[in-house]
Design a protein around this nucleic acid. Structure first.
Ligand SMILES: [Zn+2]
Ligand SMILES: [Zn+2]
Ligand SMILES: [Zn+2]
Ligand SMILES: [Zn+2]
Lengths: 158, 158
DNA sequence: GCAGAAAATGATATATTATAACATTTCAAC
DNA sequence: GTTGAAATGTTATAATATATCATTTTCTGC
């Protein structure tokens, strides 16, 4: 059985640093600015492997000092999602950092209802099944939302 | 190419009557009450093949006479979704009538961004791909959200 | 039929998520 | 340094959803 959710006790600083490095590259390639605010929001999203709501981000930013307003966070989120650095999890109204922002993909999200962690997979069998089903009915895909809730292996076995 | 979205000019009264008849049966089998309010909400949802928001339902119910409050609509929606008569479309924050409420299923939803219509499919290839991907990583599925946005055949070709 | 319990709805308030509109600041290009 | 575009700040409000308690309706057992 392959891993998908990160191991407990993994070196999470590596996750964060790698994500930031990739984000810098993606922004650079797109001639987009990875500003302080965007970096703060992005880093907060990567604090855990859970999805984070806009207002959790607001609270975190506010407790750091002066009051941050909703549009500030939503703008940063829009920027990050447009560039594919962050994905919105529709069934949670929350946001999740992508670990492969360099390539275009139709991701699928496994959401553990016990520990709250989210894992993104890019599974060609699933993507192909979706594409084929769409093709069968003459539907031209623009975007897909595939979110699977349940128990991750750790939570199912402990 | 098989049909999925209903034809223009189809006999929609048949859709509605069939849906209501099925709902009555499902409620009866579950010893649940298909009250006036639940029937009204359900019928409003079936007015079109689009997904309907809670507040659109509220407005429709209110214009029928006295003011209806949000909890009234949300309660009816909870009842209907719990019984599988209606599905929530997460990416739209909206609700859509199921045309096969009698059988358990993991549905997939095609959402046309042009005409707004939604079509539910129960595609075993997709469902199996999801189950297999979950199995591969030891994930125990509780619920799935598969929503596909794009252009329906009518809108793509006209 | 009637009492009591359970289910459903009404009513009020409030929580959560998200955007519109305009002002100010920052920053890169010239 | 000036200037124009991008980003952020500020204020207000829209859209979606739930908590809580009161009242009404329906069901069950007698
Ligand atoms: Zn990590
Ligand atoms: Zn878990
Ligand atoms: Zn119809
Ligand atoms: Zn269409």
């Amino acid at each position: 059985m392959s891993d998908l959710f990160p191991k407990k006790g993994h070196d999470h600083d590596r996750c964060v640093h790698s994500a930031i490095a990739q984000a810098e590259k993606v922004c650079d390639d797109a001639s987009a600015r990875f500003t302080d605010m965007r970096r703060k929001v992005f880093t907060l999203i990567w604090q855990s492997h859970k999805a984070v709501t806009a207002y959790e981000l607001l609270d975190a930013l506010t407790s750091e000092g002066q009051r941050v307003q909703p549009p500030t966070v939503y703008r940063a989120l829009e920027f990050l999602t447009d560039l594919g650095l962050v994905h919105r999890i529709e069934s949670l109204n929350a946001y999740f950092g992508c670990d492969r922002p360099d390539c275009d993909h139709l991701g699928q999200y496994f959401i553990c209802t016990e520990c709250g962690r989210v894992a993104e997979e890019v599974n060609e069998d699933m993507s192909n099944a979706v594409r084929k089903a769409a093709g069968n009915v003459g539907f031209a895909i623009q975007a897909t939302t595939v979110e699977i809730k349940g128990l991750c292996h750790d939570c199912a076995t402990h």
